[in-house]
Nucleic acid binder design. Structure first.
Ligand SMILES: [Mn+2]
Ligand SMILES: [Mn+2]
Ligand SMILES: [Zn+2]
Ligand SMILES: [Zn+2]
Lengths: 147, 147
DNA sequence: CTCCTTATGATACTCAGTATCAACTAATCA
DNA sequence: TGATTAGTTGATACTGAGTATCATAAGGAG
C-alpha cells in the first residue's frame, strides 16, 4: 500500500503538479477500504475544502486510475466505483436483504485466472470478485421472497 | 442458444405480453455476437420500425437481463453493453485499453464460494466476477503506458 | 367481442461525467 | 528572490445514458 507522499512524488515525476486538491483527494482515497464513488469523494472533501470543484475530483480520479492507484469497478447502478488497487486482496459479500457487508480474504483464483488467460488470450491484470447472498440474520426470513 | 420464440414464450409464462417491439428486439439481440449498447438496438430497429421508442428498448433489455437472456457487461466508457448469454454460466474479461470483451466459461468457483460461505456465514446466492486486462491486440502497444 | 391489465412512445427530467475557459499557481530558473 | 510558463483549478454550460410520467394503444383470458 503506497503512501500519499509516494503517490504525489510519482505524479511529480510525470510532470504533474502537486496541488492542494490533489493532495487532499489522494489522502482521502487511501483511507477508503470500501468501494467509493466520485460523488463520495466530492461530498467528503467539500466539508474540509468548500472551494473544491467537482471537475477536479473526476480529473484526479482519472489520473489516479491511470497511475494504477485506484481501479474503476462496475457497479450495477450504472455509475462507477473506485477501489484502491494495492489494497492486498479484500473482497466482500453483500446481503441482498439488509445490505450488511462482510469481508473475506484468501480468494485463490490463480488457477482459474490462468485457464482464462489461456482461453481468451487476454493478459489478466486484475480481478474483482463480489458476492451477494443472505447474511446469517436474514436467512430465516425469506419465505416472502421465494418465488 | 435459445430461439426467439422460446424466449417470447418464457415472457408469456411470466405474465408479460408478447408485443411487436419485444419480438423485434429479441430477434435483433439474438443476431448479435459482439457486445452492443442499448443505443445500437435503438438505431438498428428504428430503420425497420420508425415508431419504436427509446424507453421501450431500455425496458426490454432490462427484462431480457432479468430473464438471463442477455448480460450487462461493464464498458470503460461508462455506458453498459449487453451480450447474449450462451447457455451455462459465463463471465467476461474487459480490455482496459480498447474495451473489447471476451467471454469465458467454466469458472469453477464452487470450492471458493463454499469456503467463503463457511467463513462469513452468508448463504451465497450470486457472484460477480469481473476481470480486466489486455486483449491480444493491445498487448503489443503498452510501452508508453508501462510503469 | 369485452374488459382489464400491461405495454408503448412522447415528453420531460435526472444526474454522472465532460468540455471550455479565464483566473490561478506550482515549479523551474535567472 | 522574482519573472516566466505550462499545468491546474473551479464556475459554468453542456452531453447523453438512463428513468419517471402519463395518456393512449394493444395483448390476451374468458
Ligand atoms: Mn482476489
Ligand atoms: Mn459499468
Ligand atoms: Zn442481511
Ligand atoms: Zn484491447
Amino acid at each position: 500500500m503506497r503512501t500519499a507522499e509516494a503517490i504525489l512524488e510519482t505524479m511529480h515525476e510525470r510532470g504533474c503538479r502537486v496541488t492542494g486538491p490533489r493532495r487532499a483527494i489522494v489522502e482521502f482515497v487511501l483511507e477508503q477500504c470500501e468501494p467509493f464513488s466520485a460523488e463520495d469523494v466530492f461530498r467528503a472533501l467539500r466539508r474540509v475544502q468548500p472551494t473544491i470543484g467537482r471537475a477536479t475530483v473526476f480529473r484526479t480520479l482519472d489520473l489516479l486510475a491511470e497511475l494504477g492507484v485506484v481501479e474503476r469497478v462496475h457497479h450495477p447502478s450504472g455509475t462507477h466505483r473506485y477501489v484502491v488497487s494495492s489494497d492486498g486482496h479484500r473482497h466482500h459479500v453483500v446481503c441482498v436483504r439488509c445490505g450488511r457487508v462482510a469481508a473475506f480474504s484468501g480468494c485463490n483464483l490463480e488457477p482459474i485466472l490462468a485457464s482464462i488467460a489461456d482461453q481468451t488470450r487476454f493478459r489478466i491484470l486484475d480481478h474483482w470478485l463480489e458476492l451477494s447472498g443472505l447474511c446469517q440474520a436474514c436467512q430465516g426470513e425469506t419465505m416472502a421472497v421465494s418465488r
